[in-house]
């Protein structure tokens, strides 16, 4: 994976339909958990409501669009206002009949939605990998690490990164790992470090010589995460606390 240029992902986010919700959640899953180091996104309506720097998005990043229906608004909107799309994905082509069992509101989410998001996110991540391999080794994004959107669409959530020897390092799956451990009742502090390290090392390559650095950094990041959550566990939906 290169390098500096990040792959852009634009979801249609279609608010009317469940497939639109799937595009958004799958995109976030790729950004936060599957490929946090190599992807950025932007709200599609910013192509019209934003400024020139937002409209440069697809010219700065090889871009994947993810659409919820055959109208292909994300693809058409991106090409109309920003630049050529490299990969166009349509949820119904990927998930088929599964979409009919999904919901547009998180209040109604169940296992069908969760599985659909996982499958779609995996497909997007595979396309990210293909595009990344095609990026020249020395190509450098003008704004690595962020998009130009003022609402921070492209920035990973704070819990996706740790401070390692003075550097900001993105760790695959870290928000999911922290949420899981928090849900399991793991308390922050010195006693949590080994468990956080072991879990993180399943998803993120940690060399033996770096383990001690990671141990401290992950424990500190987990403590900060727990502070942000306060006493309450995050819930995806009031109805489905297990999701």
């Amino acid at each position: 994976m290169s390098r500096e240029t990040k792959v852009g992902i634009i979801a249609c986010s279609g608010e009317e339909i469940a497939a639109g919700t799937l595009t958004r959640l799958a995109t976030r899953r790729v950004l936060e958990m599957l490929r946090p180091q190599s992807t950025v996104t932007l709200c599609l309506p910013l192509f019209l409501a934003g400024e020139e720097q937002e409209r440069r998005f697809a010219r700065l990043h090889p871009t994947i669009t993810v659409d919820g229906c055959d109208k292909l608004c994300a693809k058409r909107g991106t090409e109309q206002y920003s630049g050529q799309v490299q990969v166009s994905l349509n949820v119904s082509d990927i998930l088929g009949d599964r979409v009919a069992k999904c919901h547009r509101s998180a209040r109604d989410f169940d296992r069908s939605d969760e599985e659909a998001v996982f499958l779609l996110a995996e497909r997007i991540a595979a396309e990210v990998d293909s595009l990344s391999q095609a990026i020249p080794e020395n190509e450098v994004s003008p704004n690595p690490g962020t998009t130009s959107c003022g609402c921070s669409c492209g920035s990973p959530p704070p819990e996706a990164n740790i401070q390692l020897d003075g550097k900001n390092v993105a760790v695959n799956g870290l928000p999911l790992i922290f949420a899981h451990l928090h849900k399991q009742g793991l308390r922050p502090g010195p006693g949590c470090a080994e468990q956080v390290l072991q879990t993180a090392s399943i998803y993120h390559e940690i060399r033996d010589e770096d383990r001690e650095s990671y141990r401290g950094a992950l424990a500190a990041a987990y403590e900060a995460y727990c502070r942000r959550q306060g006493a309450d566990l995050l819930q995806l939906s009031p109805k489905n606390k297990e999701l």
Binding site: G14, E15, C73, S105, R107
Partner: peptide, 27 residues
Amino acid sequence: SREAVYEVTDKRMPGRAETVCLALLVT
């Protein structure tokens, strides 16, 4: 913003309030 809208269209005012994909307006 989206969940508040769904609460209105699906629970508080079904049939009287609806939503539209913003992406459709963009295109």
